[in-house]
Design a protein around this nucleic acid. Structure first.
Lengths: 250, 250
DNA sequence: TCAAGTTGTCTACTTATCTAGACAACCAAA
DNA sequence: TTTGGTTGTCTAGATAAGTAGACAACTTGA
């Protein structure tokens, strides 16, 4: 990108301004550009990425739409702030506590829909399902007026037949499980990946097309090892980072 | 995307075929399409995404270039496989156990360059630097002929003045630290995010423009809590998932 | 063997993106 | 106030991306 020779138009499926915008977003995200800093001028960006000034402008305009930078005529374009949320992932993921740095009240769970159906074979195996039937629940989580994540939960229907109803009422997985007779459970496995958001994720999470989602796939179990919940969560990567809890050194 | 009305061209900076390609990649990644499955026909994809067949073709062609699918004239386009690597993140990330073995399961580490310089203030604070000087080392990790990740390591130069030289020779952080008198250390903090790859990451990790990187930011410490290493790693998200180690339930 | 269905390739055309240059509006510091 | 530097806006033209239709090459199952 930086040294893309004019003829070597890469045809990557990304417009030039989008690539520039994401490059700048990365610099803001990892601290090379901090809140209050002035971006390079439009002319400098155009020079650096070997594009016309209009193309560079479109890049900063997109970042401005996202509220990441602010352009001031006659002066320059400035970084407004990062505003990244931290989501804790640990043994006991008390969700209602982990969202938002300041308060415990943040993080609103909403049940979109639920159904009892045959689980995909790999999920059925992970949950050690007998009959193969499972409760699938789709939820979203928001905080501070922003969509944070969306999840697909799978429970054994023979073990937790009413979990969807209870979850809809309580708005918390931990509470719903407690009401269903599960006093304690732990996260036994988590795998994290990242990919582009699908069309439905773009819609539900209120993202731009082509945005990125962090995908976590987790298994919660009773303390004796009995599998309880298989849950896949997609976080809006531009708003959330995952804070991994490590066990105490001893 | 799926129901994009013709006039509502979103102008997202992503070409239509790129959005389709990433949508399909997501379906392959999360198991909705499995190895051996046949993709919808080009005509069906064109219909579903409201584009011309040629545009849909370009999407599958890109996936074929990545080795994710294979097109067979007269028959269809088939998913070849996922081939996702798992990278473990835990308390003690013993990458290479014995000195004699050249390559461990987690791949081959190569030192790109290193320098002694002033650390950024936030890193200096995390490492509790006295003079502010730190050793910065850039490394890459490959496995099976593929680039897996690239990292930026920061060490306190007063504590580990020769770490770069030793790391260059041993090819393992654990070994290099052991030779430097550090017998044991633990991961005390890890934060995971995701964003588009920068131009240099695209080059080093051998990715396509606009690819996604998983970014981990970790702090390793002695068992008494003394900070040792601040390390930022960027994984090629299309090749790697992070497997989070959870402490035993007891 | 045949017919239906699928991918591969070609040409022509339309639409969107990027380039190029100019100038206005505005800011900040001399 | 003046000057140089910056963002905002306009017009026109060049290049890339997407549409449209046709047909060849090949596979599969009847």
């Amino acid at each position: 990108m930086t040294d893309r020779t004019p003829g070597t138009r890469s045809s990557s499926g990304y417009s030039a301004w989008r690539l520039i915008a994401e490059e700048l977003r990365a610099e803001i995200g990892d601290g090379r550009l901090r809140a209050g800093d002035r971006l390079p001028t439009e002319a400098a960006l155009a020079e650096r990425f070997s594009v016309n000034r209009h193309t560079a402008r479109q890049a900063t305009a997109t970042l401005a739409e996202d509220g990441l930078v602010e352009s001031r005529r006659g002066s320059g374009t400035y970084v407004t702030g990062e505003a990244m949320r931290l989501h804790r992932i640990g043994v006991r993921t008390r969700l209602t506590k982990s969202l938002g740095e300041k308060a415990s009240a943040s993080g609103n769970l909403r049940v979109l829909n639920s159904a009892v159906e045959d689980a995909p074979t790999d999920i059925a195996r992970r949950l050690a399902l007998d009959g193969g039937k499972a409760v699938r629940i789709e939820t979203t989580r928001s905080a501070g007026g922003q969509q944070i994540s969306m999840s697909t939960h799978w429970f054994d229907v023979s073990r937790l037949p009413d979990i969807a109803t209870v979850l809809r009422r309580t708005g918390s997985v931990t509470s719903a499980l407690r009401e269903s007779g599960v006093d304690d459970y732990v996260r036994t496995s988590t795998v994290v990946g990242a990919r582009h958001a699908t069309a439905s994720e773009v819609a539900v999470l209120d993202l731009g097309q082509g945005a990125i989602v962090l995908v976590t796939e987790g298994l919660d179990s009773l303390t004796d090892g009995t599998p309880l919940q298989h849950v896949v969560t997609r976080f809006a990567a531009q708003r959330v980072r995952l804070d991994i809890e490590h066990p105490r050194a001893d």
